[in-house]
Amino acid sequence: MASIHPTAIIDPAAQLDSTVTVGPYAVIGAHVRIGPGTTVGPHTVIEGRTTIGSDNRIFQFASIGAISQDMSYGGEPTELVIGDRNTIREFCTLNLGTMKEEGVTRIGSDNWIMAYVHVAHDCRVGDHIVMANNATLAGHVHVGDWAVIGGLSGVHQFVHIGAHAMIGFQGHVAQDVPPYMTVDGNPLTVRAVNLTGLKRRGFSPERMAAIRQMHKLLYRDSLTLEQATEAIGAMKGGQLDIDADVDVMLGFLAGSRRGIVR
């Protein structure tokens, strides 16, 4: 049997694995599904069509699966899907999607989401991401794997943040942030490659040198974006890891919707 505090209110139609733990005064709605080993803290509200995977830790007073704050939302049957092994701290607000995209807000696995973080409708948050206290994602934001978003940072709607990027404290993010880059300030500026993060993730010196070259082409060589993109493409030379990193950058640049921070 699931370990459910007697003061918790759980709709009979909710689907909870037998190993789920639910704390005092939590409220769980009818369309909620929660996987093995997940812990739901006191006073947490989980509602809407929300699916939560295994071994997540959701702390007290979080609001999970509330309807979007998009004024055009009309009650459509949209969803929130959360993966496995995430830590979601106090007072986080994670909203359902809207029909403006696929109708789903998605959060991956192994993320560290600190207190007061807001993830708005239709966001796509990858894996192994750190979002520090009060970081805010507006609607339709995409965040790549291993990105770090500093405390009190705000990310404009439709912005894409690339894999392994780092947003500094109080970042005002209104344009796309390419993979591997460190940005901060207002207006936002690319400072350098996120070398510390890459080292922690086991990137070889050769890979980091190639990424630094991509940074140089984009930000130091006075090239147009088209010229820099062409030069980055020319870096591919048959080394699988480096070629994969180049492809990550090229794919991001090709898919940018708001233009990159430059």
Rank of each mutant, 00 (worst) to 15 (best):
A174L: 13
V20D: 05
V40I: 15
T38V: 11
E226H: 15
T38D: 12
S109L: 12
L96P: 02
A138H: 09
A62K: 01
D110A: 07
I64L: 00
H128D: 11
S109T: 11
T21N: 07
V22E: 05
D243K: 01
G75M: 11
F252H: 12
R200L: 10
G150M: 10
G97R: 00
D245F: 01
T44Q: 04
D245W: 00
Q170T: 15
G35L: 04
G168V: 12
F203C: 02
I46Q: 01
T93Q: 14
I34R: 00
I67Q: 08
T105H: 06
V40N: 01
G126Q: 08
S68F: 02
I28E: 03
A174P: 06
L253H: 14
H5A: 08
W146R: 13
C123K: 04
P178K: 06
D184S: 15
E90N: 13
G65H: 05
D55T: 01
E47M: 01
N95H: 11
R85I: 01
G237I: 01
E76G: 06
N95P: 02
N186S: 15
A228R: 10
A8I: 11
D243L: 00
I9R: 03
R49Q: 11
L225I: 14
G202N: 05
T182D: 04
A231N: 08
G251A: 12
Y116V: 00
L198V: 04
G151D: 05
M114K: 07
C92L: 12
G171H: 10
S153V: 14
V32I: 11
A66L: 10
A192V: 03
M208C: 05
G37W: 03
G41L: 03
P12W: 02
S72D: 14
A66R: 06
V130C: 11
G37N: 07
A228M: 07
G103F: 06
N56I: 08
L188E: 14
T98P: 09
G97S: 08
D247R: 04
F158L: 11
V155Y: 09
Y219P: 01
T224P: 15
G171R: 02
L152K: 10
L217T: 03
R212Q: 15
L240D: 14
G97P: 13
P42N: 14
I88A: 07
V130A: 07
P36S: 02
L195A: 08
H172Q: 15
R201S: 06
G185Y: 11
G103V: 11
T38A: 06
R106Q: 09
A254H: 15
G238K: 09
V119L: 15
V27T: 11
P24S: 14
D11K: 00
G144P: 08
I107E: 05
T224C: 12
Y219M: 10
A2D: 02
N86R: 14
L253P: 14
V159P: 12
N133H: 13
G108Q: 07
A30T: 01
D221Q: 15
D145Y: 03
I88M: 10
K100F: 13
G162F: 08
S3W: 03
V177F: 08
D127K: 12
H156T: 07
Q15W: 02
D241W: 00
R106G: 03
G139W: 08
H128M: 09
W112L: 15
G23M: 14
G168Q: 09
V173S: 09
H43K: 05
M99W: 08
V117Q: 05
